[in-house]
């Protein structure tokens, strides 16, 4: 990481401290904001957040590693989360998987080389009446067909 990048990030973390508060309760909202912007929470960011909130970096890491929407490695700019739970499975999630994997040339659990998209499975999204369902970043899509899913994927910038 370059020095000026580090400085920018430190500045940003301070701003988030002002927004959410300098206390333990603010930890997850701060991590969520960093995750949303940088698609992951780097070791350096974890250290800085820990320092600001007076918590050991290991504790910050233990929180990051607990939640499936927080990551310590940097993911793609967009995350596609396809539901793999029972109702979506019945509704034909396997066909969606095949179509998306074929289109992008990567498997679920991987990120495209250009960092454009990470593919992940997730558990029930609360869209079971409209499966198969997926979320792209925070937008939700239901009643997917292989064709519709691929169209959505290809429109992601």
């Amino acid at each position: 990481m370059l020095v000026y990048e580090k400085n920018n990030l430190m500045e940003e973390i301070q701003q988030l401290g002002k927004k959410h508060g300098i206390n333990r309760n603010a930890l997850i909202p701060i991590l969520q904001d960093i995750q949303a912007k940088y698609h992951g929470i780097s070791d350096f960011a974890q250290q800085e957040i820990g320092r600001m909130l007076s918590i050991h970096p290991v504790e910050v890491y233990s929180v990051v590693s607990f939640y499936s929407f927080l990551n310590s490695n940097i993911e793609g700019r967009n995350v596609v989360r396809l539901c793999k739970t029972v109702s979506c499975d019945l509704a034909g999630k396997c066909d969606i998987v095949k179509a998306i994997e074929r289109e992008l040339g990567i498997k679920f659990g991987e990120t495209t080389k250009d960092k454009r998209i990470s593919l992940e499975y997730t558990n029930c999204l609360g869209m079971c009446d409209q499966g198969p369902a997926m979320i792209v970043n925070e937008r939700v899509y239901g009643k997917l067909t292989p064709e519709a899913a691929v169209t959505i994927i290809n429109e992601i910038k």
């Binding site: 739970t85 029972v86 109702s87 558990n123 029930c124 609360g126 869209m127 079971c128 009446d129």
Partner: peptide, 11 residues
Amino acid sequence: DEGEPGTFKDR
């Protein structure tokens, strides 16, 4: 938090 698979009433 509505995480129970098959539940979407709270939504």
